[in-house]
Simulated scan of single mutants.
Amino acid sequence: MEKKRVAIQGIKASFHEEAALKFFGNDIETVECNSFKQTCDVLKRKEADFVVMAIENSIAGSLLPNYTLLRDYQFTIIGEVYLHIQLHLLALPGVAFDQIKRVESHPIAIRQCDDFFNEHSHLNIVESTDTAACAKRIRDEQLTDTAAIANKLASEMYGLQVMERRIETNKKNYTRFLILTDNKDIQIEKANKASFSFQVSDEVGSLVRVLDAFAENEINLSKIQSMPVLGKRNQYNFYVDIEWLDHKKYEEALRRVLRYTINFTILGEYLKNDEV
């Protein structure tokens, strides 16, 4: 049986690959991409079977450009995965802390370690595109004056020592990733969560009617995100995640919501997965 090809933003041992391994297991082929848009292009060209895409972080918030990609590419969400983000300071084996002059990582990872950098203000901070890529560069170039902020997987893959463990300021830091596919034949049995996008008319109570349809059918609204419609003043795309226990009530809520919305799209129906 052929391995599932999973496109990720970043390289092996990045948090995206960690999320892919958590969702699919170890028997996958990782397709490394330089950007989220490239992951979508790879999937569209059938060079991958799935995309793992970060959509929100408990500290940094929603990744708004990725909502635009969901709308533009119209892939199907077939699952989600949560990662507990644990950030470690990694360096070459044998290097002492007082040898480190600079620390490299993704800007979001850097911002999540403010307390550490306040304590060690002499360190030169360098932003990069990917946490794991910073770890790989230290290994490849044998940099003895540089450390990376990355995950445990990166330390294992690139042979680096964990110099300082758990340097993130907020220890309850989670990222939610979506699993996307271009295969319309995949159906998720016993789905209990869905993601939608839609617009409503610019009049009083238009969004409330949609929310009431969910509430009156005992549908839990777990997320709502608005994005302006390009070139149209006072018009917004709404992205909504809902959860349900009774599938019949979910179907009834959908029938009502369709009456109140414009350009309604089901982005995916899948199993709720908040295990971390």
Score class of each variant (00 low, 15 high):
Asp98Tyr: 12
Gln86Lys: 14
Ala96Asp: 14
Ile100Phe: 01
Asp72Leu: 14
Ala148Leu: 04
Ala96Val: 09
Arg255Asn: 15
Arg45Val: 09
Ser226Pro: 08
Asn151Asp: 09
Val276Asn: 08
Glu251Cys: 10
Gln9Trp: 02
Leu180Met: 07
Glu243Phe: 06
Met1Arg: 11
Ile28Arg: 13
Gly159Cys: 00
Glu17Ile: 06
Leu143Gln: 02
Phe15Tyr: 04
Leu267Asn: 13
Phe214Pro: 12
Leu123Ile: 05
Val52Ala: 07
Asp114Phe: 01
Phe214Gly: 14
Glu17Leu: 06
Leu90Glu: 02
His247Asn: 13
Ile167Leu: 00
Ala150Arg: 00
Leu211Lys: 02
Lys101Tyr: 06
Ile59Thr: 03
Pro107Met: 05
Thr131Trp: 04
Ile266Ser: 12
Val204His: 11
Ala213Ile: 10
Leu64Asp: 15
Lys272Asn: 14
Tyr67Asn: 13
Asn26Glu: 14
Phe177Val: 07
Leu245Phe: 14
Gly94Ala: 03
Val210His: 07
Lys171Ala: 01
Phe36Ser: 14
Asn151Trp: 01
Asp145Met: 05
Tyr82Trp: 05
Ile167Ala: 00
Lys232Asn: 13
Gly94Lys: 08
Asn263Lys: 13
Arg45Asp: 11
Lys37Ser: 12
Gly268Asn: 06
Ile110Val: 05
Tyr250Met: 15
Ile242Gly: 07
Asp274Cys: 11
Leu258Thr: 09
Leu70Val: 07
Leu87Tyr: 00
Lys101Pro: 09
Tyr270Cys: 13
Arg137Ile: 03
Val229Tyr: 10
Pro107Val: 04
Val6Gln: 11
Gln235Trp: 09
Glu156Lys: 12
Leu69Met: 05
Lys152Leu: 06
Phe36Gln: 09
Asp115Pro: 02
Ser222Arg: 09
Ile77Val: 08
Ala194Val: 15
His247Gly: 07
Ile188Pro: 10
Phe198Ser: 04
Leu258Trp: 09
Lys248Gln: 13
Phe24Thr: 05
Glu80Lys: 13
Glu251Thr: 08
Ala7Trp: 03
Gly61Met: 02
Arg139Met: 01
Leu64Glu: 15
Thr129Met: 11
Lys248Asn: 12
Asp130Trp: 04
Asp185Ala: 13
Ala191Gly: 13
Leu160Asp: 00
